[in-house]
Design a protein around this nucleic acid. Sequence first.
DNA 1: ACCGCCTGTCCCAGATGTTTGAACAACTGT
DNA 2: ACAGTTGTTCAAACATCTGGGACAGGCGGT
Lengths: 254, 254
Amino acid sequence: MAKTAQNPVKSAETTFEVLDALKDLDGAGVTELAQHLGIPKSTVHNYLSTLEQEEYVVNRDGVYEVGLRFLELGAYARHREKLFEIAKPEVDRLAAETGELGNILVEEHGRGSYLYRARGDKAVQVKAHVGTRVPLHTTALGKAILAHMPAERVDAIVDRHGLGGEASKSISTRAELEQELADIRERGVAFDDEERLEGLRCVAAPVLNHDDEIIGAISVSGPTNRFRSDRFREELPQKVLEVANVIELNVTYS
Amino acid sequence: MAKTAQNPVKSAETTFEVLDALKDLDGAGVTELAQHLGIPKSTVHNYLSTLEQEEYVVNRDGVYEVGLRFLELGAYARHREKLFEIAKPEVDRLAAETGELGNILVEEHGRGSYLYRARGDKAVQVKAHVGTRVPLHTTALGKAILAHMPAERVDAIVDRHGLGGEASKSISTRAELEQELADIRERGVAFDDEERLEGLRCVAAPVLNHDDEIIGAISVSGPTNRFRSDRFREELPQKVLEVANVIELNVTYS
DNA sequence: ACCGCCTGTCCCAGATGTTTGAACAACTGT
DNA sequence: ACAGTTGTTCAAACATCTGGGACAGGCGGT
């Protein structure tokens, strides 16, 4: 999985370095990009003009920016995920009924990718938007996924990405992770108690296909002051599990 | 605008050819892709392994597929569009109140890119999803945009992309286009009467910034049987215009 | 208006990376 | 067990990318 290409096409790598820099800088000129990347500006110019020609980058009065053609590719990639199509309406319902923020996450390359986010009427404003990628062990969604993966895949992912925590409460040893995953399997749901973001709690449930393979997870998240006692420990878990079950049924018959 | 790069990085072009093919084939193996592209499979393999290493492509049991990292780039590109952030809640409202399909479109590289699509409770099922790119002159949204562009930009776009119609009713001569755009400027809204899709009508309004520059357009679309007489000619246009005005106000103060 | 200074763009020769067929290994289905 | 797939590797030949430098155009300052 974590294989490195034997015969990598360096220009392809550079292409994506340019795009990533364009994203990090939130749009930039040739010179600025060249300095940021540490490569000559004539080279950067070659890449940018090629990308513009292919319509993957747009030049708005002197500033190059990531183009909407990536939205085409990205929307396609999302559309291809069975889970998205099926879970979206159910997560919309989850968000509407709880008033909170509903989420869908899937694993790819050992990381979590947010497929969708539904805002209820009281939903917290979270900076991370759709497409954001996060370490699996730092969110309830990710832990719900890890809990239902074959042990060897969990090992491979931990080996590759480590257990570096974004916040203090995060899991940081293998033993802690094992214990947590066992708890999640028993309970059926995973919790996130301000592990990734201050003041934010989250309740997640895995979504399995008919062969009991994990295909993703859904969750509701909200502020600690509304996520406490019975609502956090009983009411919301039950709700999330119910929605996950509906999704699993729909996944099976499709 | 339609410039071709003087010093194109051919490998970058090839990279996107591979990705496009992956999308067209909806996932494929090395050999299949190589045949589709007419290049040796060892070359294709180099690109795919590089793309996989960079996590832009994923290999699911032998089949390479477009990865969710493009969702990250795509969501970022959309997020960067001022219009999306501001217009989304209003278009949601438009869709909810009419029960139909609400849309946001912006121009890029002389084509229209759907930024967002909101489904009301009776909304028609349309195959085109977010990110889809369409010729501007074939939709009400695109015509609303063209109608408020400087004439030279309209000329440049027509020169570049032509007036090839997807359906029989489409505009096919320059004079027809000019007339249509003048009508739209006078009326304030643009109509689409089954021009692009059979049985589908659409009412669109432009969104201008405080300098009267066009930044995009919004619309509602639905089946011909619900889009007729007064509703099509009076009620919906008024509604769409009202929403567009609200968006324009919000664009100004941001 | 003039002048620096800063951009983005262009060009070409040299160096580097990319391409390619062929060979191999790993599967699949018969 | 076998034939016919597939994906993967390798190294040599060559096409391509790189990168310094030169150029034009724009902007702000004096």
